[in-house]
Design a protein around this nucleic acid. Sequence first.
DNA 1: CGATTTTTGAGGTACGCAACTAAAATTCTG
DNA 2: CAGAATTTTAGTTGCGTACCTCAAAAATCG
Lengths: 349, 349
Amino acid sequence: MTGGATQPAIRATLEDVARAAGVSLATVDRVVNRREGVRAKTVARVEAAVAKLGYRADVAAARLARGQTFRFAFVLPTGSNSFMTNLSEQVQRTADWLAGQRGFIDILHVDVFDPDVLAGALETLSPAYQGVAVIALDHPRVRAAIDELVGRGVAVVTLVSDAPSSRRLHYVGIDNPAAGRTAATLMGRFLAGREGTVAVIAGSLSLRDHTERQFGFHQILSSEYPNLPALPVIEGRDDSDRTRELTAALLARHADLRGIYCCGAGNRGIADALEASGRAREVVWITHELTQYTRRFLVRGTLDAVINQDPGHEARSAARVLLAHCSGEPISADQERIRIDIFLRDNLP
Amino acid sequence: MTGGATQPAIRATLEDVARAAGVSLATVDRVVNRREGVRAKTVARVEAAVAKLGYRADVAAARLARGQTFRFAFVLPTGSNSFMTNLSEQVQRTADWLAGQRGFIDILHVDVFDPDVLAGALETLSPAYQGVAVIALDHPRVRAAIDELVGRGVAVVTLVSDAPSSRRLHYVGIDNPAAGRTAATLMGRFLAGREGTVAVIAGSLSLRDHTERQFGFHQILSSEYPNLPALPVIEGRDDSDRTRELTAALLARHADLRGIYCCGAGNRGIADALEASGRAREVVWITHELTQYTRRFLVRGTLDAVINQDPGHEARSAARVLLAHCSGEPISADQERIRIDIFLRDNLP
DNA sequence: CGATTTTTGAGGTACGCAACTAAAATTCTG
DNA sequence: CAGAATTTTAGTTGCGTACCTCAAAAATCG
């Protein structure tokens, strides 16, 4: 057995460092926090002591002494689909966790799909917030509102849906074109060698994330699976009643329909229509977001794969990024990267 | 816009609660920490004040005041495959993070595949550790060693590989039978409608995780894809030279070989043999663990899918579970559940 | 009722660090 | 080289909680 390099049983404190370096507590503090007013010679002495004792600041003590509190706003959509409901819940949980870390999250519900309403909400946001997480819309007014917040020194992260050309600090969400490509590869491979058409149902093509997914999907499908021509994209407005009718019409009109890719919500309608048609098992259906419904359709075999983004990760990641930024800590990029999950019936969490 | 219920700008402290309840600090302390010696009536009054003010203990202050430090051992394999190397690195990162949280991790490298050596290492572990994370082997001696540690009051979590019948606190890793089933479904669907045989390469059938994956794989393949009979499992001992020869032999002997599922390591050997044979694109190859190599094979198209467990999550989760247990906090099960990731060329992180 | 037990109050210390003030040491100026 | 200006350092306080002691008050019991 090879032992790991063992750290001292009790951690060194600032005071230990001060004693070892023969200077006062205050001087050590200046050095470790890179403040002005210490001679180079003294700095070197202190740093040597820090290295020798393996000093690491105790984050609990530092936070306590600093005594800052943070206040973040999460701007989420008003009453919406299952995914957004899950997300709200996860944000609430994150808020509970942050409350123990001197951070407060207020959840504001806004009609995020109306650019004017969303921009208005951002513009009139209380100046009490040091950070904002928002499900953005890539629209000039919204971008302007984000940029103004950033200009005022507020940390802004976009959540789930990005506004790439704004000055937001960070985007917490998946790479949507890649998600679309992933769906296309699954579709193409599940239908290996078969001939037929594939339908794409989006919520609305004015939503950036839906457009991007659809773009990625078509990119792969057309280049790699010429046996599977795609029908023109149809808009289901994330509404189950509408997707039910649209899906029923698709099935009726296209006897050679082999696959359906839904890059938005309204899955219950699609499931209803597919199951009613009796072609549920032969048509490959791929959609986004694991919810109580899509989970059920997956288990039942109506749905073949779910492309998912984990709302829990997203909520926590947004909070961590805001917190890290506001307390001047670095963020570790690969821990904050939101993965594109693929769920089949067999690997459901 | 509907505003979220806004918490007070400054958090309530214990003293605020004491004032509001008309009792002393000491009494509030007794109530919130569930200590003896407070009348039910007083408890109720204090709890009402806590609720009214929304008091939550400041974790930074609490940790500081409590002043406990924790010391955990992570028992990892000696020099090993890419996955284990990644895991080591992630454990090291987790250790750096924990060092700021009054926790210390020592990494011990042991030949975890020899039950006697592993058990011996656990038995002679310094009593300084409050917690141990170990890549377990499901073997009587190892189980006994784990149980003895638990009996001594040490928190033990198994990492990546479980010892289910031991008294370990928690298992941090994926559901291996489910991972095998996931691989089988991908294999079956990617080979939809085609006829041919499928080979399964394990590291060693005495490793519980490999056996479980293989079991799950066969379960689904035989019941749902009768067009794809599996060849007898072969053992590659996680060694690339050996898997190269075995794969070459498989390809030579079975002209109808359509798929390879590798539930262990040694992927470089498989890739070499597949690419040398010229059948890399037609044979569906599915394996485990995303590494620099499997990533490359995936991008190149030799490899069709990777079933992955995230070593970063596993390292952090193990540390969080140990820390939570040692400080008497609850753990949130679904945050600690390790997911079975599926990676295709398109959704690589 | 007095004696005993239970409950509560008051106060203190310690945790490790940040941030402030005041003092000491150094450098600059005429 | 005195004295002012500046840089560097020491000393101190407070953050919010945990945990401790000791005494006072209240409740309970015989």
